[in-house]
Simulated scan of single mutants.
Amino acid sequence: MPQLLTVRVKRPAGRPIRIWVPVLPVLLVLAPVVVLATAVAAVACLVYRISLLRALGTGWRIMSALPGTRFDIEQGRTAVLVSIR
Rank of each mutant, 00 (worst) to 15 (best):
V35W: 11
P32V: 09
G68C: 10
W20P: 00
G59H: 03
I73H: 15
I62Q: 03
G57Q: 12
L56N: 03
R70L: 06
P25T: 06
L53V: 11
R11D: 13
T69H: 09
K10R: 04
V82K: 01
T78W: 08
G59Y: 04
R18S: 14
V35F: 12
T69Q: 05
M1D: 15
R77E: 15
A31F: 09
V82M: 12
L53P: 15
R54K: 04
A13C: 08
V7Q: 02
V82W: 11
Y48F: 10
P2R: 01
G57D: 15
T78L: 09
P25R: 01
L81I: 03
P22A: 05
I62R: 00
L53K: 00
I73P: 15
Q3P: 00
M1L: 09
A79G: 13
V43Y: 12
R77M: 14
T69E: 04
L53Y: 10
V29Q: 00
I84G: 03
G76N: 13
L4V: 10
R15D: 14
G57K: 07
W60H: 02
P32W: 05
M63N: 12
R8K: 06
P67M: 10
V47D: 06
I62Y: 01
C45R: 00
V7T: 06
E74S: 14
R15K: 05
L28Q: 12
A55T: 06
Q75K: 05
R49T: 07
W60C: 04
I73C: 14
S83K: 03
P22T: 07
A65D: 09
V82E: 12
V43D: 10
L81F: 10
P25H: 04
S51W: 04
V33T: 04
L27V: 09
V26N: 02
V26E: 06
T78H: 11
P12M: 01
P67I: 10
P32I: 11
G59N: 11
A55P: 02
V80M: 14
A13H: 09
F71Y: 15
Y48D: 15
T58A: 10
K10S: 11
W60F: 07
Y48V: 08
V40I: 05
M1H: 11
R61E: 15
L56K: 01
L24M: 07
S64E: 14
A79I: 09
V33H: 01
A65F: 01
V40Q: 06
T69P: 07
T78Y: 11
V23W: 05
P32R: 00
W20N: 14
L28W: 15
L36I: 01
Q75P: 09
